[in-house]
């Protein structure tokens, strides 16, 4: 009765393609909705949806630890922080009534995005990778176990891990101090 995503049965091979397509469609829809959202809260929620679908994309790439870490951190922490910041920094009624999204903003962003996409796309297309054939089936066994990540964190990447811990502590203390409200 166990359904193990790591075995390569035909069902999972078909689903792995849909497993990449569905999050991609969700991501594109979320980004489109984010661009034309009517207020800030909806924009933040659609970005959270975009992060969630990115996590699902990581899952379809076979990195399940990273996918759940992404959902936990981005959706659970970053998106939540954005929502809280929106709550704590409500604009006055005058700003609210002003045009939330003017066409200039959207057009500028769109233009920058499209031009950069074309430039980067041309670089990708000109590289030798563009015409290589890759196996696109789900890996039959994920050779990377969690133990390998753990061993690397304690072994090879120990210094980076400790530095990251110090960085996160510093960020926590710094954010707490910055956001502390001194008014009674």
């Amino acid at each position: 009765m166990t359904a193990n995503p790591e075995t390569g049965s035909p069902l999972w091979q078909i689903l792995s393609n849909w497993g990449s397509l569905i999050p991609t469609i969700l991501l594109l829809l979320a980004l489109a909705g984010f661009s034309i959202a009517r207020n800030l809260i909806r924009a933040a929620l659609l970005i959270a949806l975009a992060f969630l679908s990115l996590g699902l994309l990581f899952l379809s790439l076979g990195a399940e630890f990273l996918a759940f870490a992404q959902i936990l951190v981005y959706v659970g922490a970053v998106a939540m922080l954005m929502l809280f910041t929106i709550l704590l920094s409500r604009p006055s009624e005058r700003e609210h009534a002003a045009a939330w999204l003017d066409g200039g903003e959207l057009l500028r962003g769109f233009l920058i995005g499209i031009i950069l996409t074309f430039i980067l796309g041309m670089f990708i297309a000109a590289s030798p990778l563009a015409s290589q054939k890759f196996q696109n089936d789900f890996p039959a066994q994920t050779s990377l176990s969690l133990q390998a990540i753990g061993q690397a964190l304690i072994g090879d990447a120990a210094a980076s891990f400790l530095a990251l811990a110090v960085l996160l502590t510093a960020a926590l203390i710094g954010a707490a101090i910055l956001a502390f409200d001194e008014r009674p």
């Binding site: 959270a48 969630l52 759940f68 959902i71 936990l72 659970g76 998106a79 939540m80 929502l83």
Partner: peptide, 10 residues
């Protein structure tokens, strides 16, 4: 489990 409970917060 922890990733899923993050969605519940939202």
């Amino acid at each position: 489990y922890f990733a899923i409970s993050a969605i519940a917060e939202i």
